[in-house]
Design a protein around this nucleic acid. Structure first.
Lengths: 244, 244
DNA sequence: GACCTTTAATTGTCTGACATTCATAGATCA
DNA sequence: TGATCTATGAATGTCAGACAATTAAAGGTC
């Protein structure tokens, strides 16, 4: 009889897990070179293609990087914030698109997290952050802008807000929440009127940050959440009407 | 001359990216079967091992699952919250351990995010959540508990707090932040006195949630952050003293 | 001393084969 | 008929061996 403990994952998965454990538990340190594929094959008593499949699994998680040529090989990779962002964003985006997460739920999560940054951002924002935000606000006011570009600019604005909190861990966590919303936001058709409304709130946020007034930032974010929610619900209602 | 646009990633990486795009952009839907490895090899004009390496990359990100036997193959996987948690946690943990993130930064991020859940949790907490939290508080009060078990219980308590916000997207995002802190927390030796202090604050949090008082939850979380920070700094100071 | 060439190690890729798994279809038997 | 057993074939999993491409370092040439 087969029970749950009988599970026999692929050899390549087992080997990947063994190496992953070694890395996570600190038995292999950053930039340390793994044995060559041939050596690993011998150690684990499998063929080279199997080892390679294991290494590709790890490479997909940015746990290792490989280098060809003499003195090349696979090295434990220092997971950079950039790489982590990327992973975070694809995972979050797929999670949202595949699990029928409602617009309301995603919106609520995103703005709750963003408000968590507000007090820190109000304290630590630099002129640089403010300049970025003002520039994005200006772009958002251009009349000829496509909906897609408007959304992209919106994301850039909010990333600047998050980055203003000057906490890389927060930025990393928030990247997923903000970017994953984009596909949902892209479904919205922004009228001139709604764009004006959003630009207005963005300006309030930038002003409040400039004045170091955390409470006003919080307030503006709540207004933006409420307004975004209405826009999203209109889209959903429209959709439901078309495909009953 | 080679410039940045000349980059030629591995064939397996290219193929993985092509399939990943198809999934992310919705051209392949959940549970849809990919062509067989032999067919993919023909389509992309590469050998089967190369295709397999690409598929393993995708499997490592939980984007596909494979099934052996007749009518088996690779299928687009519905990314579950469980799988996403797992990825999130390993990535966050590695990010923190590999990038010399200070205790202060990690702590600040974690509690900022957790406070973001507080208002929602205060509104939506169920008796179930409260029961879990009380149970963990009780466990934390046991005298014989090891530091590791105390930490594990601490994590369980905070997960219950996060889950009480009843927003799966928030839970997912927070899982990384809370769990990734554990290796850092594990370095702390909890004295009977500090445990008592923490249990006290946990009790305040549970009480405030029970009374639906968001402001008091927020306040208790701030107290907990301040206290955790002190404990962490003591550890760091001790360490610095030992290895000057 | 600067530049070129060889060399060896290592990853990337291909070919072909065999092992293993498993749903279905067909064969067997009560 | 109906149930059970047994091929069958399609697919993934694994292996072995080979060659191509890349690259750092050693050695040779001017």
């Amino acid at each position: 009889m087969k029970n749950a403990t009988d599970k026999k994952p692929d050899l390549s998965a087992q080997i990947a897990q063994a190496i992953r454990d070694a890395i996570v538990e600190g038995r292999m340190i950053v930039d340390e070179r793994l044995p060559s594929e041939a050596e690993l094959a011998e150690q684990f008593d499998v063929s080279r293609p199997t080892v390679r499949e294991a290494l590709k699994r790890l490479a997909a998680q940015s746990l290792i990087r490989t280098q060809r040529g003499a003195f090349g090989g696979a090295f434990v990779n220092r997971l950079s914030y950039e790489e982590a962002y990327g992973q975070q964003i694809t995972t979050s985006t797929l999670l949202l698109s595949m699990n029928a997460v409602s617009f309301e739920t995603a919106c609520e999560a995103r703005y709750a997290l963003e408000r968590a940054c507000a007090p820190l951002a109000a304290t630590r924002r630099t002129p640089d952050h403010l300049a970025t935000m003002r520039a994005e606000i200006h772009r958002q006011s251009q009349p000829g802008l496509s909906d897609e570009s408007f959304c992209a600019s919106d994301v850039a604005f909010h990333r600047a807000l998050v980055d203003a909190a000057d906490n890389p861990v927060l930025s990393y966590q928030l990247a997923g929440a903000v970017e994953a919303m984009q596909p949902l936001m892209n479904m919205i058709t922004f009228t001139a009127r709604s764009r004006g409304e959003i630009v207005g709130i963005h300006t309030r946020i930038a002003d409040a940050l400039e004045a170091h007034q955390a409470a006003r930032v919080d307030e503006a974010l709540r207004a933006l959440e409420a307004y975004t929610l209405i826009l999203g619900q209109n889209v959903m209602a429209e959709r439901a009407r078309k495909t009953p």
